[in-house]
Design a protein around this nucleic acid. Structure first.
Length: 508
RNA sequence: GCAACCGUAGCUCAGAUGGCUAGAGCGCCUGACUGUGGAUCAGGAGGUCCCCGGUUCAAGUCCGGGCGGUUGUACCA
């Protein structure tokens, strides 16, 4: 009979103890920060109606790519949530009795039907917090504070991260200045360069594509952005991306805007105010940034933590005002040996129109979201994660089956004192049991047979110490006869001995 | 979606121009005191060489198609 082959669906993964434990710890830390600001927990289902999730039903009969969707029994489209913000906006419009402002946090898996990459999965955790019902920019300033506090709480040092802020209204203002704010045209022609040279292309270009191009600054550099805004760009795989074919004048304005980088937030605001000229929407954006700046400054969140950066776009999404990006700035080397900064782990912004699609009324909201797994990867990289893969701190070994009850009683008494204790339940000699403890990363083993029980003694073994000592032991004989890191103790002194060892490993 | 590269043991890979009974390191299992982790030593298990078809006396190796993976790019809430 053909057996079933165990396999994982592309982009999904199993997560084992060490990683789950580390993630739980991190989530706990983050939760404490969110709660310190008064955010309250919310849980929503993983599945929602497609139209609730957002703009994924064009006029076609199928939801857009990018999400996991299926038909329900009534032939309606439902889908796995791809973020936690759309469900929040549904909740806000479904329960008008909720207190406003509604400030909630939510953590859980979200799903995206995209090509997975290294560290990029189709199921991953996000940890969001949002303020719904607050139009004022001090709410945005608060988001920045929470972001900074959170990153520091989980162990990212000041200087190893930066919160970057921009405002969509300013971006829109710039677009307005260039005259391309309602851009919608078809560009077509023959690919001018590369392996596919001569092949015809045809592409619809809208204002969004200008943002898209700007958003790629990190990836393709300023020259790349320039190409994307003008004639088009050939990437290293030989793929050609048609450009926006902007005028020289417009290009110049955009590039000038992207250069409005200064060390101080105030200077950036001044520079942007100058660049933005008479654009009403642009001026509004600058005012918002000024308000955020003054709040942050008053609270002592200076440019070492939060800066204004005109190049931040944050995708296309639903953002309507300030946008935030929490970036880790320390360098990492990828597998091809290039060093680059770790990148963004925290993102968000103001989205004043998101609830409107349900209720018709504008309900302002602002918030941010942690890419939990990416942040976890960063902490691992920094060595700020202990990778314990066990919950047991003590393994009671079974040397003599006749004493099985005794072993369980020993374990029970330790548990009652709050010590996580496991009794070895499978068969096998002592060596096998110690190997198990070693592999499971359990720090202490207790060994006892008839000799010990007769004398009221126990053998207690510090396995982690033994592991270190073993590096100096040359031959098998001394290892076995000396039994490093193993002590005989009186049975009634077990608890204090266990505690002493666990304290050394900071496990209590 | 498009493009390039890749697919041999659980993992990392070796197997010039077609000629094997397909190998190595690591890992895994057993043993070296039936009361002790590591190192060492001695054994052992483990492969339809991704799948299907073609060329050939002969295919892990060449050709076609599929599937899967990696990377880049597009999209990205």
């Amino acid at each position: 009979m053909a057996r079933t082959k165990p396999r994982l669906y592309r982009g999904f993964r199993d997560v084992f103890a060490a990683d789950v434990l580390a993630r739980n710890r991190m989530i706990n830390t983050v939760r404490q920060v969110y709660e310190r600001y008064g955010f309250v927990p919310l849980e929503t289902p993983a599945i929602e109606y497609v139209e609730v999730l957002g703009k994924f039903l064009p006029e076609s009969t199928q939801p857009d790519g990018g999400i996991f969707s299926l038909h329900n029994e009534d032939e309606e489209w439902i889908a796995l949530r791809y973020d936690l913000t759309a469900p929040l906006s549904r909740v806000v419009s479904m329960y008008p009795e909720l207190p406003r402002p509604f400030r909630r946090y939510q953590v859980g898996p979200v799903y995206r039907f995209e090509k997975p990459g290294p560290g990029r999965f189709r199921e991953f955790y996000q940890f969001d917090f949002d303020s719904v019902g607050v139009p004022r920019a001090d709410a945005d300033a608060e988001i920045c504070c929470v972001m900074a506090d959170t990153l520091e709480a989980v162990g990212i040092q000041r200087g190893d991260y930066i919160i970057k802020v921009n405002d969509r209204k300013i971006l829109n203002g710039i677009l307005e200045l260039t005259g391309y704010n309602n851009l919608d045209k078809i560009v077509e022609g023959d690919i001018p360069i590369g392996p596919a040279k001569g092949k015809p292309y045809r592409r619809q270009i809208t204002s969004d594509d200008i943002f898209r191009a700007i958003d790629k600054l990190d990836k393709v550099g300023i020259e790349g952005v320039e190409l994307l805004l003008t004639g088009g760009r050939l990437d290293e795989s030989g793929d050609y991306t048609p450009g926006c074919e902007l005028s020289d004048d417009a290009l110049e304005k955009i590039l000038g805007y992207l250069n409005a980088k200064k060390d101080s937030r105030k200077e950036v605001c001044d520079l942007l105010a100058e660049t933005i000229g008479d654009s009403e929407i642009g001026k509004e954006g600058v005012e918002e940034l000024r308000t955020i700046d003054s709040h942050l400054t008053a609270l002592g969140y200076d440019e070492s933590r939060v800066i204004f950066d005109p190049t931040v776009v944050r995708g296309l999404s639903y953002y309507t005002g300030p946008v935030f990006e929490g970036e880790l700035t320390f360098e990492v080397t990828d597998e091809s040996g290039n060093s680059k900064s770790f990148g963004s782990v925290f993102g968000g912004g103001r989205y004043d129109d998101l609830v409107k699609r349900f209720t018709g009324q504008m309900i302002p909201a602002t918030g941010a979201s942690i890419g939990v797994d990416r942040l976890l990867a960063a902490l691992k990289h920094l060595g700020r994660i202990d990778t314990k893969s066990s919950t047991a701190h003590v393994l009671v070994t079974v040397m003599d089956k006749n004493f099985r009850t005794e072993y369980h009683k020993l374990a029970h008494s330790l548990r009652q004192q709050g010590i996580n204790t496991e009794v070895y339940m499978a068969g096998g000699n002592i060596g096998k049991q110690l190997k198990y403890a070693d592999k499971a990363n359990i720090p202490i083993a207790i060994i006892a047979g008839d000799r010990e029980f007769e004398d009221g003694k126990l053998q207690i073994k510090d396995l982690w110490l033994g592991r270190d000592l073993s590096e100096e032991v040359e031959d098998r004989e001394t290892w076995r006869t000396e039994r490093p890191a193993q002590f005989e103790i009186n049975a009634d002194e077990l608890l204090e001995n266990v505690k002493t060892i666990l304290n050394q490993y900071k496990l209590l």
